[in-house]
Amino acid sequence: MKNSIRKLFAASTTALLMAGLGACSQTPTQVSQQCELSETSNVDRLFAEVGEKLQDRSCHYSYPRYRDQLLSAAKGSPGPDNEARFAGLLRDTIDQGVISKRQGQALFSQYFDPEFYVVKDEARSSCSSLRQKDKLYAGMRSELAFKREGMLEILNDKQRFREAQQHFTDLQLVLDAVEVACTQDV
């Protein structure tokens, strides 16, 4: 009796897995046909196209690709208007449930906010956080690279990138001092 239950369970699990794998392999190919973006280099048109495609739930899978395409298109046409374009699109994608609000905030902050999202995300006290200072600094460095992309290459806003760099320097100075002070107590 036990054996037959085990066999039945194994068979149904295999069938479910096969069905799941089949679904995974089929969805993207179907999606890629109808969710493809045109070859346009017009940034406004491309943002509008992405907005339209994302109305279709089956195109939600393509969101990461859209995001990369938009980032690269915006770099081809840098300027302050790109911030509003990205903000509009992110708001729509949040409303449509493509990404969560937190994901949207993370993306927008990483590219366009002079402050560091990775630092805001740290919930522990400074003394505790700084036990993994290398990890925090690595996160800040990679976020600074995103900010360089967002502020210089996409918005062409040197002043804002300088602010981000200033934040980077100030934060490292303060956190270095705090780390030394915390370890002196031990």
Binding site: V119, K120, R124, S125, S126, H167, L171, L175, A181
Partner: peptide, 10 residues
């Protein structure tokens, strides 16, 4: 070190 998170510092 003890009262604030790095986010507070920022």
């Amino acid at each position: 070190g003890r009262k604030m998170t790095p986010g507070d510092v920022q």
